[in-house]
């Protein structure tokens, strides 16, 4: 393959990796338009390559966040159960509901989440000492460098929400992280940096189930995937560094802006313009 194309793929991967690592998004929203519009891949080829990029970005970021204790592995495992079930259901139901309707619902959820994040302060449930044995009480390092404890609220609703995210992601190919991060932060009261780091950990698991099939079927354009993966890894490392310097309040605002941009792009897609 032409080295210029490899470098271009790496550049896209770096950008997507940075955004993905910062905000707990998979990067598919960046990969897909570039792969289809700029590189001219078919939708199915682009999905396969994008999934490799998503896994790489996710794992690259998660390896740092998990080590720092920012990714809540336990919570991620729990929420991934219903996400994976949702993805199975979504794959079986694919084609039953019109894509444009799903994308409109998805965009509406993102707009609501973004506006809520901009309008309201973060709510974190600080547990009582008697909650020490509660399996849903965890610790994280705040912006002040001190350890803080938090309790995850609304776990059943959160798991249902992740199930819906799995269905949507499976049916439309979008939005796992864009739903999960606001869901964890706004509804389950997980601190935003923990929510985005945990989403990074989860996205790789979700993407794994899909991409392994593509690889075993020989359906991945290996050189495209390779360039994208190298860039996504570099981008993830950069994103982790930036994330460490960003205050939680700023991250919430920037994420809200990113969610609004994603919602506009998805509405354009629903309307057949993109």
């Amino acid at each position: 393959m032409d080295p210029v194309i490899i470098l271009a793929l790496m550049a896209v991967g770096i950008f997507a990796g940075i955004v993905g690592a910062l905000f707990g998004l998979g990067g598919g929203i960046i990969f897909m338009p570039f792969l289809t519009i700029v590189f001219g891949l078919s939708a199915s080829d682009a999905v396969a390559v994008s999934l490799v990029g998503i896994v790489t970005s996710s794992v690259g970021a998660a390896s740092s966040y998990v080590k720092e204790g920012r990714s809540n592995i336990r919570l991620g495992l729990l929420l991934e159960i219903t996400t994976a079930i949702g993805a199975i259901i979504g794959a079986l139901l694919a084609g039953i509901m019109a894509d444009w309707l799903l994308l409109c619902v998805f965009s509406a959820m993102l707009i609501y989440s973004a506006l809520h994040m901009l309008k309201h302060k973060e709510v974190v449930n600080e547990p009582e000492i008697s909650d020490n044995d509660d399996p849903l009480v965890f610790e994280y390092a705040g912006d002040d460098g001190e350890k803080h404890r938090y309790k995850v609220d609304n776990i059943k609703g959160g798991m249902l929400g992740c199930g819906a995210a799995g269905v949507l992601a499976s049916m439309t190919g979008v939005g796992g992280g864009a739903i999960k991060v606001p869901l964890m932060n706004l509804y389950m009261h997980v601190p935003i940096k923990v929510a985005s780091a945990t989403s990074n950990y989860m996205i790789g698991i979700t993407a794994f189930s899909g991409v392994i099939i593509y690889l075993l079927n020989g359906s991945i354009l290996l050189d495209y995937a390779a360039g994208m993966a190298i860039g996504a890894f570099i981008g993830a490392l950069i994103g982790v560094r930036i994330s460490g310097r960003l205050k939680a309040t700023s991250m919430r605002k920037y994420l809200a802006v990113v969610l609004l941009i994603i919602s506009v792009l998805e509405l354009l897609k629903a309307g057949g313009i993109m």
Binding site: V52, V55, T56, V59, I205, F208, L215, D223, A225, A229
Partner: peptide, 20 residues
């Protein structure tokens, strides 16, 4: 080498599952 690329991508995408 496409064979080497294939194995590299396999190592990458198996990371999340091996992590679990």
């Amino acid at each position: 080498s496409t064979d080497i690329l294939w194995f590299g991508i396999l190592a990458l995408i198996c990371a999340p599952f091996l992590g679990i």
